[in-house]
């Protein structure tokens, strides 16, 4: 029953994909040379107009480009011409650095806030103000103070990953079931053991939800951040290919961004499943 349902769902997914690709293919197919066009305008528009070729690449063009990129992802032919694998690698490395820094700050501080109602109320106004700031708004300040574009991108990732993790950790820790804490109290469990063997496992599912939200936001933000700072990374690659008017490359990059984002999310979902306990 369950298996046949997932089989059917997979089938429907394939059908939707096929319909989408067909429509895309038909919509971008050449329309034939256009006669009667103002020659000046035709010259301006180049091949698009004169040979009836659509400006949008079709699925076959994208597939060919994607194959090209995937078969040689790590080449370096100068600062502006590197394989998509290298660009993605830069982005992942920046996200990883900023994200791990955020984990190191958010989880201990979140613990503190969750355990202490005083700290919770004291820090609340700061969190409330900092949380809604778009991470990119920090960019000029980061560039000015850090004076390094790569580090600034990492800082922006750090800032945007921080809040969901901090808030979820504090919430998870503050809402550990009273009865579990009472068990620890009646057993005279020490502070350290209580934190690591009662509160942490009890709050872990909530903390991981925060971590999963954070990695999603971080991956959204890195593309925008790299468009701003330039140099390397998948965001820069997209911007660069736009400047080259290579829409095929842009679409390919979009696909790759989506795939990597999905992998990151699924990896954290798997960890979350490990620490979730049924009640």
């Amino acid at each position: 029953m369950h298996r046949s349902q997932s089989l059917r769902a997979g089938l429907v997914s394939l059908v939707i994909l096929a319909v989408f690709l067909t429509v895309w293919h038909l919509a971008t197919r050449g329309t034939g040379a256009t006669a009667g066009m103002d020659p000046e305008y035709a010259k301006l528009m180049g091949l698009t107009a004169t040979q009836g070729k659509s400006a949008m690449p079709g699925p076959l063009d994208v597939a060919a480009t994607l194959w090209g990129h995937l078969s040689d992802p790590f080449y370096v032919r100068g600062t502006n011409d590197m394989g998509i694998g290298i660009q993605i690698g830069w982005s992942i490395a920046r996200v990883a650095a900023g994200y791990l820094l955020a984990v190191l700050v958010a989880i201990p501080v979140g613990f503190l806030i969750g355990m202490s109602p005083l700290m919770s109320r004291a820090l609340d106004p700061f969190i409330q103000i900092m949380k809604p700031i778009s991470p990119l708004a920090w960019m000029p300040l980061a560039l000015y103070t850090i004076k390094d574009s790569g580090l600034s991108a990492i800082f922006v990732i750090f800032i945007c990953s921080l809040w969901p993790m901090l808030i979820n950790t504090a919430f998870g820790v503050a809402n550990v079931r009273k009865e579990w804490l009472n068990v620890a109290r009646t057993l005279e469990v020490g502070t350290f053991r209580r934190a690591f063997q009662v509160i942490l496992p009890a709050a872990a599912p909530t903390i991981l939800t925060g971590m999963r939200i954070s990695i999603g936001i971080a991956w959204l933000v890195i593309v925008a951040a790299e468009m701003l700072v330039g140099g390397t990374g998948i965001g820069y690659f997209v911007w660069n290919e736009w400047n080259n008017l290579s829409i095929t490359n842009v679409i390919t990059a979009i696909l790759v961004i989506g795939l990597v984002g999905m992998v990151l999310d699924q990896a954290l979902a798997r960890v979350a499943r490990l620490v979730t306990f049924p009640e």
Binding site: E179, W180, V183, T186, L187, E188
Partner: peptide, 28 residues
């Protein structure tokens, strides 16, 4: 305050759900 001399059996059993039966008792 609480003490290991006075054990409590809670109405809601209050077991730690991420631990096994053995883990719960061994924790105590």
């Amino acid at each position: 305050g609480p003490s290991l001399d006075r054990a409590v059996i809670f109405q809601s059993h209050a077991l730690l759900p991420w631990r096994t039966v053995l883990g719960n008792v061994a924790f105590a």
